[in-house]
Design a protein around this nucleic acid. Sequence first.
DNA 1: GTAAAAGCAGCAGAAAACTGCAAATAAACG
DNA 2: CGTTTATTTGCAGTTTTCTGCTGCTTTTAC
Lengths: 256, 256
Amino acid sequence: MQNLKQIPALKKERHAFILKQVNLHNRVLSNDLSLLLNVSEDTIRRDLNELAEEGRVEKVHGGALSRSFSGIYQKQQVYAVDKKKLIAAKACGLIKDNMLILVGGGTSVREMVRLLPESLSATFCTISITIAEELLQHENLEVIMLGGKISHSSKVVMDGDVFFKLGDLSFDLCIMGSNGIDEGKGLTENDLEIIPLKKAMIKASRKTAVLGISEKLNTRQRGVVCPLTQIDYLVTELDPGDVLLEKYQMEGLTIL
Amino acid sequence: MQNLKQIPALKKERHAFILKQVNLHNRVLSNDLSLLLNVSEDTIRRDLNELAEEGRVEKVHGGALSRSFSGIYQKQQVYAVDKKKLIAAKACGLIKDNMLILVGGGTSVREMVRLLPESLSATFCTISITIAEELLQHENLEVIMLGGKISHSSKVVMDGDVFFKLGDLSFDLCIMGSNGIDEGKGLTENDLEIIPLKKAMIKASRKTAVLGISEKLNTRQRGVVCPLTQIDYLVTELDPGDVLLEKYQMEGLTIL
DNA sequence: GTAAAAGCAGCAGAAAACTGCAAATAAACG
DNA sequence: CGTTTATTTGCAGTTTTCTGCTGCTTTTAC
């Protein structure tokens, strides 16, 4: 990346740029930013202070970190990040203005939220506080958090009123990640706790989209969420015409 | 695993990395870490000291152990130079095992949550996803998120079922920050949206504690939450005997 | 016991952060 | 428009933080 702007960037623009960088890389150095934006480090420092005051980044000596970073170097996913980005971009295409959308947790969904166009104006409902946090970065989205007891491991709402509440609503679209997708058993999970939740989510929505990198295809976990027939869209990083996807297409799923 | 970074690591990143290693392997050697992170052993030692001060690892000759591994709980030592830290530490004293506690948003509350002893086992209910995130750092806490539409600015639940839900529950203690505290009008806020929420929170709790640095004392904002009589505890960084607090004590508040 | 490794205190250079101030820029207003 | 006001930005000087190093003490291992 080279210097994007010789023109003096407005403060708001800088803030947006910085946030983007932080969310993308989980970290930024004041030094880098001052070079990228052609302003003094003092200005960057002031920007970071302001963003930190608003709780949008965590400021540290030398730069800033993403607020929702809980152990940065998960190297096991580095190779998959590009794939997930691609998946995320495709999934964005399903979302239109004014829709009411239910989203689950997981990194795929998170990437998708990050890629949502800033102009999008819709209502999102989520069970994950991590995702809620990401959704709030978009000014034009209405964000609704489902309440209940939160699981320590996955940071999603696990019981309480979720089920009751999900039964009350009708969503245009449900978007969730997946652990295993397979022709026989359909959508499967290894975290058994989350199974009833996903079932309820699917039931509450008119259409359901499942995101997953291709490695998840033709794998099976212990817990069964639903058969393929209950899923409408399958989003992977592969080309829709890929041979791996053929049998899913025949099952009636729309492949993106 | 080889050295992950040629890039300069920020201190906080190192800490996160070290914690991950400790929790993964139950032990780390200073030597290994210094190689992995490309810093001197002195730096690692200092990092380990800091993490040990916070009670996140147990330091031993040559490295560190996971705290849950040895089962030793470091005493909560607070050399509170910061006012909010001091307030937070005092407020922690109000909380006992097995309580059901309702907490609001704000930085004071956040600091308090961070200082909660790791051994504490209680149930927390919150309206703020930021606070929920912090609460989840404590393994022994049960965290309940109240659902509803989330405000972009403050990241707290603003309407929806919150009120309905708050009416259903009875909390042992409610802890919230404050914008203004004053003898005449009592507790006041400048964000009008949050007023009804705070009212409902107070009503749903047996006892209410208000946290605020002394600068908030004798100041008044536009929106009135409640008179002082509805508040039970007032927590500031001042000594309870401070002259500034006298009149609040006379109003019947317990000063911490 | 001795030797090696780890720890510790303190120092110093470098980098970053903060302070106050003045110039530049944008916004408000008649 | 021009003028005034407020905000923003960069700069210089000072203070704080971070980090590696040196010399010395303590712990560990043989």
